[in-house]
Design a protein around this nucleic acid. Structure first.
Length: 567
RNA sequence: GCGCCUGUAGCUCAAUCGGAUAGAGCAACGGACUUCUAAUCCGUAGGUUGCAGGUUCGAUUCCUGCCAGGCGCACCA
């Protein structure tokens, strides 16, 4: 209906502009009217045209209305405010959407974009040195919902996890585990400086001792032992991480190992290629600004000319000891993704990596010519509090609340929904005690309750032997109550909302929509009794309720939240 | 010092790529269960959209400058 109206208006505008010398015809864009009394749709085209036509918007609107050929459903139009064209439709003229919703079921709202893309979304990528904390959880929930959201638009989307299983931190991990193993054997140990003090390391140590006797470990050469311990610890941590993710119903298509990238020679090959392309030169980096670095010494080292692609300074790709930097591996990783045929890469990082975006994009552009790739979504910090008191989150201190604990306390649905109630770029104050309250303060229950409530009514109808008729046989013109009209309008908006959320990579919009739709249903529920004497009205209202349940289900599904039929 | 993010009701957040009277929830107050799930609904109250300019028919939205908070700033990952 919306596009039909837009087309009608567009034709009128084109006619209007026939005699006028203009370069381009602005596109007509209809919006749903917000306020009561403004009709069903509103159009601002007259105001848009005001400048180039140099006429008053209200006069232009009058002219447009003179030319336009409306479809039969339009019952009234008016010019309001500064020049809006408000369109009123005949009552319930769009109610047949309910039939489509029920017929399309879980597919309602989905579409197939004209040019589907192969998209790789990399998210979480928590270091395999310990359990995930709440901040990781936010990124995890965002990434997974984003995958689901882009899939509704017909894209081919994959979930990818980049395992940082190389570098110094893995050595530290191995040392920490070894210290705990010796401790468990009753040896007095000095815990390594900067090691991971968390108790989970003790668990890992204990597990390793079961499969690898202490004597055997002791006999091994230092190098060999540390490599083995690192492998085992990483593997066990990844098992924990996968379990944490599974608890949130998140499953990755690929876990990509950084170490593999080094061992396969991909990183060195890449550095060689950069050298061949004259993108690397020997230079001296200036001292970092604003951060006191006591041991800064100017030195000549190989630098990647990222400044040629928009970066602030050139970046080192090889460390003093001759091994590649993390950055080098990361470039190789993104280059690999590109090689695997992804049209688009989306990375979800923590806000503390914000300074890293430009250099990766610069590198990707240098290598592939793609601009602004990857798309990086920076997830701001989660400030975890307990009864208003801040809880420190630090792997190093070993005193963090793990994601697992939170999911156990609050439940996966509540964690997923709550994390998606805010935009990614806003900081999130997440209070453990408040999130544990399973009351109406928790929006997820509000939405799920609406869904369960509909099913209660459907069960009731069945119990009362209300014989259902085909959706297309329902007399939907009976749905004229204010709350019924409002619900239908909300349901009509769902596909557009999905598309918008997908275009902007903003799944949080779905939580807002779900809450509004649930509110719309609760209002309807109180205002209009579904099961009553008028059989035709019962049929129409049951169909409406069913459609609402379907759309709630679809919305929650994109958010990865369950839609219970009973609560 | 520089870069990125944020600033809206007492609190937590919305506001459809610049639209009409800036909306919800919580907290406060007053109502609604002999009837489909009261985990709900209805009503009242609550605002100089951080500050100051600019752009135009029109600004929470865009631009500039300030203020406040968060994150980051070589040879770590």
């Amino acid at each position: 209906m919306k596009s039909t109206l837009e087309q009608a208006l567009q034709e009128a505008v084109t006619k209007l502009l026939l005699n006028i010398d203009t370069n381009d015809t602005p596109r007509v864009h209809l919006t749903r009217s917000k306020a009561d009394g403004h009709g069903d749709y509103a159009c601002n085209i007259a105001m848009v045209l005001a400048r180039c036509l140099k006429q008053k918007p209200s006069d232009i609107a009058t002219n447009i209305l003179f030319h336009v050929q409306w479809p039969a459903e339009v019952c009234k139009t008016e010019i309001a405010g500064p020049g809006f064209i408000n369109i009123h439709l005949k009552a319930a003229s769009e109610a047949n959407i309910l039939c489509s919703i029920v017929a399309q079921g879980v597919q309602y709202g989905n579409q197939h974009v004209t040019s589907p893309q192969k998209i790789c979304i990399e998210f979480v990528s928590a270091n395999p040195t310990g359990p995930m904390h709440v901040g990781h959880g936010r990124g995890a929930v965002l990434g997974d919902s984003l995958v689901r959201l882009l899939q509704t638009q017909g894209h081919d989307v994959q979930r990818e996890y980049y395992i940082n299983d190389a570098g110094g931190q893995i050595g530290v991990l191995a040392c920490s585990v070894w210290a705990r193993i010796k401790e468990l054997q009753g040896q007095a140990v000095v815990f390594p400086e900067g090691g991971y003090p968390g108790l989970y390391i003790v668990d890992i140590a204990r597990e390793i001792l079961i499969s690898h006797p202490f004597k055997t470990l002791l006999k091994m050469p230092e190098n060999e032992r540390m490599t083995l311990l690192a492998d085992l610890a990483v593997s066990k941590n990844m098992t924990l991480i996968r379990a944490d993710l599974a608890r949130l119903n998140i499953h990755f298509d690929l876990f990509f190992s950084e170490r593999q990238l080094h061992e396969s020679g991909a990183v060195n090959t890449l550095i060689q290629r950069l050298q061949d392309d004259n993108l690397i030169f020997n230079g001296i980096l200036p001292p970092p600004k604003g951060k006191s670095v006591s041991d800064y010494t100017p030195q000549v080292q190989p630098l990647f000319k990222t400044t040629s692609f928009g970066d602030d300074v050139d970046r080192p790709v090889i460390k003093q000891d001759g091994t590649p930097t993390y950055f080098a591996a990361d470039i190789a990783y993104h280059y690999d993704k590109h090689g695997r045929g992804f049209d688009r890469m989306i990375d979800i990082w923590g806000a503390d990596h914000g300074g890293y975006v430009t250099r990766v994009q610069a590198a990707v552009e240098a290598l592939t010519g793609l601009q602004k790739q990857p798309d990086v979504l920076l997830v701001q910090m989660v400030n975890l509090t307990r009864n208003g008191q801040p809880v420190r989150m630090s792997k190093r201190a070993g005193t963090f609340v793990t994601l697992e604990e939170v999911v156990r306390e609050v439940g996966a649905d509540a964690v997923r929904f709550n994390f998606m109630t805010r935009r990614a770029e806003t900081q999130f104050d997440f209070d453990l005690e408040q999130a544990k309250l399973q009351s109406n303060e928790n929006p997820v229950y509000y939405v799920q309750y609406a869904h369960a409530r509909i099913y209660a009514v459907l069960r009731k109808a069945e119990a009362m032997n209300v014989r259902r008729i085909a959706a297309t046989d329902c007399d939907l013109s009976l749905l004229v109550a204010k709350s019924e009209q409002a619900l239908i309008a909300q349901l009509l908006g769902y596909p557009g909302l999905l598309q918008k959320a997908a275009d902007r990579l903003e799944p949080y919009r779905l939580t807002n929509y779900a809450m509004q739709l649930a509110a719309g249903f609760h209002t309807f529920y109180h205002q209009c009794r579904i099961i009553q004497d008028n059989t035709a009205l019962v049929h129409a209202r049951l169909l409406l309720a069913e459609a609402v349940a379907q759309v709630l289900h679809n919305t929650l599904n994109v958010l990865g939240v369950s839609a219970p039929e009973k609560m």
